[in-house]
Nucleic acid binder design. Structure first.
Lengths: 335, 335
DNA sequence: TTGTATGCGTTATCAC
DNA sequence: GTGATAACGCATACAA
């Protein structure tokens, strides 16, 4: 049974002795077909090995039913967002296509081109450092709404986390434990999340009278490790931060590693707090106190905004609350 | 500047006073065009807001340059594989499309249909429980090669991990520490990885004279927790397993949680070993000994096999070595 | 209940 | 150098 290129409606029609219109209609159930001819057609579909060609259909119909999603990396946070997107999109009857851009605007730009070239119905983007909102607005046609998530950029609607409140709660809690000096580890401030986390912390520490020292590094565990070291080396032993706050969960691992090697007991000698909850945070000894974003909900919300945009209505950005999960790494005696 | 649906080659051609053929050629650089007309065309492309339509191009050319990838879930293992796939595909000039199936054959089947309907050039699949290789072979046209990864199924080429050797090394190591009884936590044996991990362990324990007790559960951390409990309850205190081996990294977390709540000191009272390395495994106290698959390499290898298949040559399945990473949770005094 | 014919936006084969 | 024009595989308005 040799078939070079997949057979077409024509082949099926010829085989079944009907017109291609009829074949098309039995496939799409788009008009009444006599049972006997339908049977003949279905038989022919089998015997010719016909496979529906969505790309032809797409061209004809002018729409793909596909949503493009651009994430920065396949890290646990974004994959949780993805799950939320997937779930919500499913109920809308859309499929989606993911691609990761790394923290590179050039690559993200290329992928945006690809998405519009493939006539996606909408694009969900986690914008990278250097993201040019004006360019994107100009480039992407209006019928293809763009919704940002995780990070906000002026000029486009987005769904992001509201860090301020939770950070305030956290700092109150830390102050309550008697902490006086927080060391904060951030990556580049070309990303809105990092700026927000920083300003939230500055505000809270300012109001509550805690000293704040900031250290910037690469957003990986090695960066977390080295930044912690620098944070401690900047001060005499008695002036060192008593709590280290890592602005993402992978730098957090580096902080923890550094604590371990430096012989500090987390939760006793020094407090540690992270951003984004992972399963291991709970199992760790001591369990890690974290500022927890609603990643799954962010995915859902992004799709909800997209839906609004697709219906032609005006969309407004959304901020999701961040939850403070207190465990023991912050120095809490028990929980 | 209103444009309803994106403009086409025709619009550009009209605007530039040339034929659509010329426009097509300047876009694709597919034949020599006088500099002045090229300039006029490029100008027109700008002014009409033309965006290349890949779906039309695809229909005409009969190929999409897209590879479909079906993973079970967006867990750390599969996302590592994804990174390998992405990297390798990039050098081949292909883009790819990911979708997750959950452990549901129905869903996987649907997505396979979707992939062929969208005329993917090839499909990379992590087959789920219930995967019907015969069906897939019959359904997917020959021009669209299918390569399995992570799990093998008779009848289709795959790239999987070779567990036997590393397991043997592990058991030797454990026996060396004086362990006599290993408790193994597995999920369903409808998946080849679980069967392989089991048979590898049975073989090694048999040869080295260790007792083996198996407990099956759901592949999440709660499953790991409950299975550990059952594993201990099955025996009188003195006959309980002295080492618990979790067949994946998320069940491992459950095991660890159970150890903690039961008051067992990992690495002293009981040994714990996991499958698949994660960053946290190293930072954990004690650091976790694991059997470490080469996830990234698996992605690369899958693409390599695909490449061979795409070139029309016969492909043979590949098995990647698994590496035993000894840390301290297995009871090693130091490392 | 079924068939004919047109066009979706390209690329490619001719011809000029 | 450039321009007509025929497919690609499908959905559908219009006929019959």
């Amino acid at each position: 049974m040799e078939r070079k290129s997949s057979s077409t409606l024509h082949d099926v029609a010829r085989e079944a002795n009907v017109s291609i219109a009829t074949v098309s209609h039995v496939i799409n159930n788009s008009r009444v077909v006599k049972a006997s001819t339908r049977a003949r057609v279905e038989e022919a579909i089998q015997s010719t090995g016909y496979r529906h060609n969505m790309v032809a259909r797409e061209l004809k119909m002018g729409s793909s039913g596909l949503i493009g999603v651009l994430i920065v990396d396949y890290n646990p946070f974004y994959t949780d967002v993805l799950r939320g997107i997937e779930k919500r999109l499913e109920t809308m009857g859309y499929k989606f296509v993911v691609a990761s851009t790394g923290e590179q605007w050039e690559r993200q730009r290329e992928l945006i081109h690809l998405m519009v070239a493939r006539r996606m119905q909408g694009i969900l983007i986690a914008p990278v450092a250097g993201f040019d909102a004006e360019y994107v607005t100009r480039y992407v046609p209006e019928q293809c709404p763009v919704i940002l998530f995780d990070r906000h950029v002026d000029g486009l609607p987005s769904v992001t986390s509201e860090t301020r409140n939770a950070t305030r709660q956290l700092v109150e809690h830390l102050a309550h434990h008697g902490n006086r000096h927080v060391g904060m580890i951030l990556s580049t401030d070309a990303i809105s999340t990092m700026r927000d986390r920083q300003s939230g912390m500055e505000e809270a520490c300012g109001e509550l009278g805690l000293k704040l020292s900031i250290e910037r590094t690469t957003p990986d565990d090695r960066g977390g490790y080295e930044a912690t070291l620098r944070l401690f080396n900047r001060f005499a032993r008695e002036d060192q931060p008593d709590v280290v706050f890592a602005a993402n969960n992978v730098m957090l691992l580096g902080v923890l590693r550094c604590m371990k090697e430096s012989g500090f007991s987390v939760g006793k000698d020094r407090s540690v707090v992270g951003f984004d909850d992972q399963i291991w945070c709970e199992v760790f000894e001591p369990p890690i106190t974290v500022l927890n974003q609603n990643a799954y909900g962010m995915g859902e919300a992004a799709v909800d905004l997209l839906k609004v945009a697709l219906e032609g209505e005006a969309v407004t950005s959304k901020r999701l609350p961040v939850h403070l999960t207190i465990r023991r790494s912050c120095g809490c005696p028990m929980n």
